[in-house]
Design a protein around this nucleic acid. Structure first.
Lengths: 219, 219
DNA sequence: CAGTGTAAGCTTATGGCGTAAGCCTAGACG
DNA sequence: CGTCTAGGCTTACGCCATAAGCTTACACTG
């Protein structure tokens, strides 16, 4: 056979793993499936990656690398908003990523992203201390809100009928009246309801609050 | 043998699973280990639970059931704050729970918790629409912030030395100056830094923002 | 009390998983 | 031409969830 096999690389392994994850979620990523996809046996992958955690760390990091840099020269709130919105988009695209955050080792993508976000605050005159806390608050909100959207989506897919039936049964509405109301809003959104982007609404509340703290510091 | 075996129940299975999770995290929960712990074979569990997902759903739901109800009669912000702080505590205690949210089917604990939180808004005069969004924002923040704390903890345990070495190396600080600063703040907190409870700080920003929206609605 | 139905155990087996250990072979280099 | 070695491959181990079918012991019926 004339064709010499194209060599495996860490790059190719990670790219394949990322595709599998995008298609079937985190649990669709196995060393065996990655290898199959590459026309190779599972153990061969270990010549290029340390182990499965290494693969997972790698693909999570690559999602962070997709998050856009803020446009320089704008004010700090605009910059943070830009980052937050881009991150939201990225994680909706890679729906498996937020669930893998726990215990992941930060790679270059993650570090660059964190550094940029922290930079927004520091360069706008936030103190070290306030920056420390602001960073935690913003990152939490970004990941939390996105995870929640994804969690809802994961349910809605499968059991739409199921869930709806549950919430239209009379005793359910009696036991959990507010939750029932809320669930029905999800099922049949009222006109205008989805026009409000709640992600940005909450984000702006935090940004406003942080601006208040910043001004209070600059006594 | 005189002793009749104490019967297995769903209750006992879930309690055992929860203990295993609290001790060793989500991955320490397997049907085999639960069975071993109960002096029984794995397959016997299936007489009382549908499958592993059922078990996981069950223990996640039981954590929601631990979240305290707000003291009635206080204003809505105090009530939401109470819920948020209790939830934070509960999830720090059950560190495996936030990572299992994705794809979990809500049980009675979850529903009661959600209903209470939604009730805080509705009974304070929030419109259906604003309640809908407020709920998403608050829940996101609670789970997001708590997950972030847990993610940091998960790393710190293992690789403290490792990480510190990385961030004190000169070129690292050059490439990611702000992140390095931040990481060092984590390693060696400055006096007064930990006095600020950033969780409540961010929470109050959101509560304040929501109060603004509420007042704007009540034109 | 004998007989029977059934709930709740047990056994066995299948197919998937990560990865340790060791083998084999094609191409690179002396 | 001969040797080295990187990068594949094979085998094997011990986990995992769970399908299918067997067995035991109690509860109730006649």
């Amino acid at each position: 056979m004339a064709q010499t096999r194209t060599p495996l690389t860490r790059e190719r392994v990670l790219r394949t793993a990322l595709t599998l994850a995008d298609e079937g979620g985190a649990e669709a990523v196995s060393m065996r499936k990655i290898a199959d996809e590459l026309g190779v046996k599972a153990m061969s992958l270990y010549n290029h990656v340390a182990n499965k955690d290494d693969v997972l760390d790698g693909i999570v990091d690559s999602t962070y690398a997709e998050i856009a840099a803020p446009t320089p020269g704008t004010d700090w709130q605009a910059q943070v908003r830009e980052i937050a919105i881009s991150a939201h988009d990225v994680f909706l695209r890679h729906h498996w990523a937020p669930g893998l955050q726990m215990g992941v080792k930060p790679g270059p993508g993650r570090l660059r992203y964190g550094d940029r976000l922290l930079g927004c605050f520091r360069e706008a005159g936030f103190s070290k201390q306030l920056t420390y806390h602001a960073y935690h608050i913003i990152e939490s909100y970004i990941l939390g809100y996105t995870s929640m959207v994804l969690a809802y989506r994961a349910v809605d897919m499968d059991q739409f009928e199921d869930v709806l039936a549950r919430f239209t049964r009379g005793d359910f509405a009696k036991e959990y009246p507010y939750f029932t109301e809320h669930a029905l809003q999800h099922m049949e959104p009222e006109p205008g309801q989805e026009d409000v982007n709640a992600y940005e609404l909450g984000l702006d509340m935090i940004l406003e609050g942080l601006e208040g703290e910043r001004r209070a510091e600059a006594t």
